[in-house]
Design a protein around this nucleic acid. Structure first.
Lengths: 251, 251
DNA sequence: TTCTATTTGTTCGTATGTATG
DNA sequence: ACATACATACGAACAAATAGA
């Protein structure tokens, strides 16, 4: 009831004009780099005030189609609608949406020699020695296990493991502060594992060969090297990864 | 225009005003949900024309801090500007990481009365009538099914279904162009379904009760209403959702 | 229910400032 | 110096949506 079906027949002038111009840009009448007619010229063409033309151009600017330079004119920047959606975090901690409500427990940590397949994930050479840490996350109320994680750290950062036991901060956060590193990039993959390995299913208190949600994250420092690699598995149904992607204006 | 530090020491009136208001919002003088003073009131307060106030508010709107409703006023939408990590897309299409390589096939579409549980997902009232569309996505090379989707659209947008068959564009993209809507928010949830319903498993050419990766997305327009709701299921192991979160500079 | 006051949205006109070529 | 083009800013009026009397 609140939405009218009259779609492209807008009576609003500046929108009509931006529609026409947007169509002409996407249709190729104005190519990328071309200068659009000047604002007074467009005013005359469409029979509207310059103010209205500017409102239309502002909309095109918001769509990323044109860019204006004073003293020069308005030129075509792109011919495809470029919206930008972003998924933003206050900090990397926000990745762990359950972090506040759950408790982490360190199971074990040992030095391992990385295999070829693991090396591909860590972006390092096979045969290198890394720390491997195993943890579970539990709901404090009923002790239900919500995550089993396997974390790999470069040998140099081993001291954060002790710290983590005391401070309860995530590894990457400790690495940032203790080693003056800066996480500039997080590469994350989410997938569904049809049959969890027996050991992991056991940690999650699930029957053998249960399915699970798997999330892998590689934390990359400013130098491009891996600061931490984490793989977590979660019981199916119990865990949900929610995110919100918002349109960013003024790209 | 943006030489550099012109932010707070700008002589441009509308910019100065947006700086002040932005500061007051972030400082807590106006809380989220609060209504800002009306445009005429702000004109008087700052001693400028309403036109200039509107330019300032437009800038705040672009920053995602406020939202305006005709007949009501301008209210505060958020109070934070700088997030550190962001996951960006060129467009909402990029959510479908496989979209370019796969082909979508429309199975059926019908009008349905939304149940109470569905209404919660759609953010509408139970009993409303919506369109429901079922599709599958196939790999062109071997015809393997990579996704089964169930899409809900408000009745008013039914015309895009015909269009989708011809133009092969996603529904939300057609709604944007045909109805002058703008997707400002996408709420996405990723989870693992332990046992897919029989019908869905069949569509995915999987054995009964197979696990699957489920992704739900709610596309929200600028008015806050749902433009499209989509639920997709993918075969386990076959599908991976990858993303990259990058540190934003200047934060 | 109808009416009215309020508030934002659209559009016009006009004038001046500032960067470019 | 000059004309051109966009940027900023003022004033005015009406339309459309909303909320409350």
């Amino acid at each position: 009831m609140e939405r009218k079906a009259a779609a492209s027949a807008s009576t609003i002038k500046h929108r009509m004009i931006s529609d026409v111009l947007s169509g002409e840009i996407q249709g190729g009448k104005f190519k990328v780099g071309d200068l659009l007619p000047s604002e007074p010229d467009l005013s005359e063409r469409f029979g509207v005030s310059r103010h209205t033309v500017r409102a239309a151009l502002r909309s095109l600017h918001g769509l990323g189609l044109v860019t204006s330079r004073r003293g020069v004119g308005t030129s075509v920047k792109g011919n495809r609608l470029a919206a930008r959606y972003s998924h933003e975090f206050g900090s990397a901690d926000d990745l762990f949406q359950y972090a506040t409500s759950t408790r982490v427990r360190l199971l074990e940590h040992d030095e391992v020699v990385v295999t070829a397949s693991m090396a591909a994930l860590l972006h390092c050479k096979a045969g290198e020695r890394w720390w491997r840490i195993r943890t579970v996350r539990q709901e404090p109320s009923n002790n239900a296990v919500v995550a089993y994680s396997e974390i790999h750290l470069p040998l140099a950062y081993g001291s954060v493991i002790r710290q983590a036991k005391k401070s309860r901060q995530p590894f990457f956060s400790l690495i940032e502060t203790l080693f003056h590193e800066k996480i500039t990039d997080i590469q994350q993959e989410i997938s569904c594992v049809a049959r969890l390995p027996a050991a992991e299913a056991a940690h999650l208190q699930l029957p053998k060969a249960s399915p699970g949600l798997q999330i892998t994250r590689r934390y990359v420092g400013s130098g491009g090297h891996t600061l931490e690699f984490a793989r977590s598995v979660h019981p199916a149904e119990l865990f949900k990864y929610a995110m919100r992607l918002q349109l960013r204006h003024g790209a």
